[in-house]
């Protein structure tokens, strides 16, 4: 009985946070939503009796992937700064 409730709520959580990931337009905010989505998927896999996959999803989808997303954004910001500095130097 409790297991059925857990299963239904885990699936409902995944079905609710999935669209939120697609609808978050700002990439920096999307990294946070992606972490939450990874955690919801981990919970779902755990409830569906797949602990190996839950471990893998927790580490990859909730930690490594948002980390890579944030580092990509930081690199793009640095390219912006370099380009602005390059333009300033050309004007002088």
């Amino acid at each position: 009985m409790i297991e059925a409730c857990l299963r239904w709520s885990a699936i409902a959580l995944v079905a609710a946070i999935g669209p939120a990931v697609a609808l978050t337009r700002d990439p920096r905010a999307q990294a946070i939503t992606l972490t939450l989505y990874g955690l919801a998927l981990t919970l779902l896999f755990f409830v569906l009796q797949a602990p190996d996959v839950a471990l893998a999803q927790a580490t990859v989808g909730a930690v490594a992937l948002p980390l890579m997303v944030l580092l990509t954004l930081a690199r793009m910001r640095r390219m912006d700064r370099d380009r602005d500095r390059g333009d300033d130097e050309e004007e002088r």
Binding site: A22, P27, Q30, L65, V69, M76
Partner: peptide
């Protein structure tokens, strides 16, 4: 681009 790539990930999940 980064939003697009994260949505590709959503597709994979």
């Amino acid at each position: 681009f980064v939003h697009l790539i994260v949505c590709v990930g959503l597709l994979q999940t």
